[in-house]
Simulated assay, not measured.
Amino acid sequence: MSYTQWFEEHANKHKVIVSKLQKQNYTKEQIIEYFDFDSMVENEPEFCPLYVDNKKCHDMESLNCYLCACPNFRFDDAGIKKVGENTQYSFCGIESKDGSQGVYGDKIHQDCSKCGVPHHTAYVEKNFDLDWKVAMKKCKL
């Protein structure tokens, strides 16, 4: 699956949940709280394939799934640049010290597995938008 395909599919799933919560008059704070990992596993098991095994994508005690991906992630399915014989497809826009570049065959992708930046509630509050695609607008190059 391409980054763009995942991005669009995820935006649609996110929109369905947020619309449901808005119809129930949830506040911004309540919506963010609803996206807490434990709540999502219980209430929205189809949102993430990891929920089936009650597994978190990052080793964090309190993980919020509102942003899921990170507003600092940058990608281009056509490739960003050549690095030797390889092509880079993604990178971290803030060069997080906890991120790294992984080489998979001739493809270079950002590895965010050790970075929990977008999953802290305070970060979600700061970058919140009811429309996930607006919050993530800088991701697609």
Rank of each mutant, 00 (worst) to 15 (best):
M1H: 11
S2N: 12
Y3K: 02
Y3H: 06
T4F: 08
Q5K: 15
E8W: 01
E8K: 09
E9W: 11
E9H: 11
E9G: 10
H10Y: 14
A11C: 00
K13Q: 10
H14P: 06
K15C: 05
K15P: 10
S19G: 05
S19Q: 15
K20D: 14
K20V: 01
K20H: 10
Q22Y: 07
Q22R: 08
K23I: 11
K23L: 09
Q24P: 06
N25I: 10
N25D: 12
T27Y: 06
T27P: 01
K28Q: 09
K28M: 03
K28D: 01
K28T: 02
E29T: 08
E29V: 00
Q30P: 14
Q30V: 07
I31K: 00
I32R: 01
I32F: 09
E33V: 10
Y34T: 05
Y34D: 08
F35P: 04
F35A: 02
S39I: 12
V41N: 02
E46G: 12
C48K: 06
L50Y: 05
Y51F: 08
Y51M: 00
V52S: 11
D53E: 13
D53A: 08
N54D: 14
N54E: 13
C57N: 07
H58C: 04
D59Q: 13
M60F: 11
E61A: 06
L63M: 12
N64F: 05
Y66Q: 00
L67D: 01
C68K: 13
C68Q: 12
C68F: 14
C68Y: 15
P71L: 10
N72H: 09
N72R: 12
F73I: 10
R74K: 12
F75A: 01
F75T: 02
F75W: 00
F75Q: 04
F75M: 04
D76N: 01
A78R: 12
K81F: 03
K81P: 10
E85I: 14
E85N: 14
N86S: 06
T87I: 10
T87E: 09
Q88Y: 05
Y89A: 02
Y89P: 01
S90C: 00
C92D: 03
G93N: 09
G93R: 10
I94E: 11
I94F: 01
S96K: 02
S96D: 09
D98H: 10
G102L: 15
G102K: 15
G105E: 01
G105I: 01
D106Q: 07
D106N: 13
H109M: 04
H109E: 14
Q110R: 12
Q110M: 15
S113T: 15
K114D: 14
V117N: 07
H120R: 11
H120I: 09
T121E: 15
Y123V: 13
V124G: 00
E125L: 13
K126Y: 11
N127S: 13
F128T: 02
D129H: 06
D131N: 11
V134A: 04
C139H: 03
L141F: 13
L141C: 11
